[in-house]
Structures are given as structure tokens and as C-alpha cells.
């Protein structure tokens, strides 16, 4: 066990934990955040995605000790029920969810991609989402929502 300080969604947490624990388990079990989800447990599906250092990270395979001083952003860190983030609002308006299991990974991946490159092409967005599996085929509505958000950013 080791004392580890984590900064998640703007809040600092001090935890006594095995440093090899996957970040996902810490977010889910210790901090009660259920945005990142356990899907495959081997970085293949993207359900556990979070944002760190401006890039997406699969939290199911990252040891919590590897986070260091970097801030972790989960879906909960974007907006609130009362005031959703513009990308969340776009997903609501487009009804871009079915079962919703992959949604956290899709939204965070799209946001991080557009943060890194506001002019990312449709193909670049599709490629970025290549590592996030949606099993109920809402892709076209998701892409509409992402495009809407991208246009909102540019306006």
C-alpha cells in the first residue's frame, strides 16, 4: 500500500492504495465515479477512457502510480445535469445514445480530438473513435452530434 495523491476533475484526493491498481478501479471504487466503465479490461474497447495530458488514456490498463501529477478528467468532469458541457448537450440534442455503455469513451475521445485539433476532419474523428467500440450502432447519430459540437466550437 502506498499513499497516492490524485487530481481528478479539479479535486485532489489522497488515497492509500496498491500503486499497481488500475486507475479505472480507483475511479470507480474509491472515488465513486461511474463515467469510465469496465468493458474488456485490456485497452481494446475504450469504455474506460479518461483524458490526461490532453490525450485519451485507457484507465483499465494504466497503473494508478503512472498518473503522477497529471489531472484526470472523466465524463463527470465535463458538465453537470443542470449545465451540460456543449458536447454533452449536442449528444442530448441528437439523441446519440442507445445503451450508453460506450458513451463516456466516445464523448471524451471526440472532445480530446477536437481540443487537439479543432479542424479535425470527419475521417480523423472517425479514426480517433476507431478504438472505442459501440455495440448498438449509434455511430451516425454520434457523428452528427460531434459535428454539431465542432461547429459550435468554431462559431
Amino acid at each position: 500500500m502506498q499513499e497516492i495523491t490524485l487530481k481528478v476533475n479539479g479535486k485532489r484526493h489522497v488515497l492509500k492504495i496498491d500503486p499497481e491498481t488500475p486507475l479505472l478501479f480507483v475511479l470507480n471504487d474509491e472515488l465513486g465515479l461511474c463515467g469510465p466503465r469496465f468493458g474488456c479490461g485490456m485497452a481494446q474497447c475504450g469504455a474506460c477512457t479518461v483524458i490526461m495530458r490532453g490525450q485519451v488514456v485507457r484507465s483499465c490498463v494504466m497503473p494508478v502510480s503512472a498518473v503522477g501529477q497529471d489531472e484526470v478528467t472523466t465524463l463527470e468532469g465535463l458538465g453537470t445535469l443542470e449545465q451540460p458541457h456543449p458536447i454533452q448537450q449536442a449528444f442530448i440534442e441528437e439523441g446519440a445514445a442507445q445503451c450508453g455503455f460506450c458513451l463516456s469513451g466516445v464523448i471524451l475521445t471526440a472532445k480530446a480530438t477536437l481540443d487537439a485539433n479543432p479542424d479535425a476532419s470527419d475521417q480523423e474523428i472517425r479514426d480517433a473513435l476507431g478504438g472505442v467500440l459501440c455495440r448498438c450502432f449509434v455511430h451516425s447519430r454520434m457523428l452528427r452530434a460531434i459535428r454539431k459540437y465542432a461547429e459550435t466550437r468554431r462559431a
Binding site: 485490456m42 485497452a43 481494446q44 483524458i51 490532453g54 490525450q55 485519451v56 488514456v57 485507457r58 490498463v61 494504466m62 497503473p63 503512472a66 475521445t109 480530446a112 480530438t113 481540443d115 487537439a116 485539433n117 479535425a120 480523423e124 479514426d127 480517433a128 476507431g130 478504438g131
Partner: peptide
């Protein structure tokens, strides 16, 4: 490319298990 980097999935060591 953009926000999807090698370190999105790859750590500094092999992960245990197939695939």
C-alpha cells in the same frame, strides 16, 4: 494522431495476458 497517442494504450511495460 491528435489525442489518440501510442500511450493511450501502451504502457512502459508489457501487460500480462494474451491480446
Amino acid at each position: 494522431l491528435n489525442a489518440v497517442r501510442c500511450s493511450t494504450c501502451h504502457q512502459d511495460h508489457n501487460l500480462v495476458g494474451p491480446r
